[in-house]
Amino acid sequence: MRSRHAFTLVELLVVIAIIGILIALLLPAVQQAREAARRIQCQNNLKQLGLAMHNYHDNHNKFPPISSSSTGFSAQALILPFIEQGNLHDLIDFSEPLMLGSGPSVTLNPVHAGIPDRILEMLLCPSDSGDPFYNDGTDTWAGTNYMINVGSGNGLYYCEGCDPNGLFWRGSNTAFRDITDGTSHTILMAETLFGGRDQVSTTVLTDPQRQIKRVSGGAPGSKTAEDIDTASASGYTGARAGSWIRTTGYHITINGFYPPNSRSPDASHHGYIVSSSRSNHPGGTQIVLADGSVSFVPETIDLSTWRALFSRGGGEVPQPY
């Protein structure tokens, strides 16, 4: 009789165990490679947005402003022709207000229906797994991960309606000549994470990276960032970065009050936001400077250096980061 060759049960289990070990060893490397690719794509997005800002400046002799009206358009909307979205730009009637009504009861102007909920890939960081869509109870909006620099964030330098020390505010007309600290020392745009939308609590802080603390009381711009930071929360929201086209501060602006990926949540007062740059990139976040260069900023950056990078003319000498 001829014997038949076969694997024993023990041998099969050993082979399976070895395969499992190899997979466990390879999986982190695969994940790191994927994150490296996503980080490069994010860098490319910021580079293209920086170039778009430069091209807008070349055409208008200034950076795009945030609309002076709360029912107007964002600076991100104004650079659409320079990020290969000229056709979308032509669909927008900038002579018509984006929103109708006033206060918290504003709604989308029907003239612009079908535009604000369009996803623009260049405005999205591929490392953010959050929901880019935001529904305010009436309309659905598409968001962006890339925010424009309002200022250093301390004092009133977070309030885009209070002439802050960054590059953008309501009705701003800043140009390269106004960046006296130097374009290589001043942030143009920085990234953030989408808010938690309906997945986070409105009464309890459960995810500082995805929630905004709401602070009430007093008129807009009447509280310093330090007051807002220490004030009790009147609630929490996941609305951050909810619309690339609206002027609301927590949708499109950023400042340097908190360090990157801060463990403290961003905070808002009448829509103005006291904030931090946030990302899912391990160890830090990415920015594009006013000279068009893109940098990765570690979470360990000195806070005074970080805030100096958001100031256009404070005379600071930022330290290496």
Rank of each mutant, 00 (worst) to 15 (best):
T8E: 05
L9H: 12
L12S: 03
L12F: 06
G20T: 01
G20L: 04
I23A: 12
A29Q: 14
A29P: 00
A29F: 07
A29S: 13
A33R: 14
A33E: 12
A33K: 14
E35C: 06
R38M: 12
Q41C: 06
C42T: 15
N45E: 02
L46D: 06
Q48R: 15
L51P: 07
M53F: 15
N55H: 13
N55C: 09
H57F: 15
S74R: 04
H89R: 14
H89E: 08
P97M: 04
M99R: 14
M99L: 15
G103Y: 02
I115S: 03
P116C: 01
I119V: 13
L124W: 07
P126T: 04
S127F: 00
G130K: 10
A142P: 07
T144N: 07
I148H: 06
N149H: 08
Y158T: 13
G166R: 09
L167W: 13
F168P: 12
L188H: 02
M189W: 05
A190P: 08
G195V: 07
R197Y: 10
R197K: 15
V204L: 12
G221V: 09
I228G: 00
G235N: 04
Y236F: 15
I245C: 12
R246F: 08
I254Q: 03
G256P: 01
Y272V: 00
S275L: 07
N280L: 12
N280D: 15
H281A: 03
G284H: 08
Q286P: 00
I287E: 05
I287H: 08
A290G: 04
D291W: 05
D291Y: 02
F296R: 11
T300C: 03
D302K: 06
S304N: 12
W306F: 09
W306E: 03
R312F: 08
G314P: 10
E316P: 01
E316S: 15
Y321I: 11
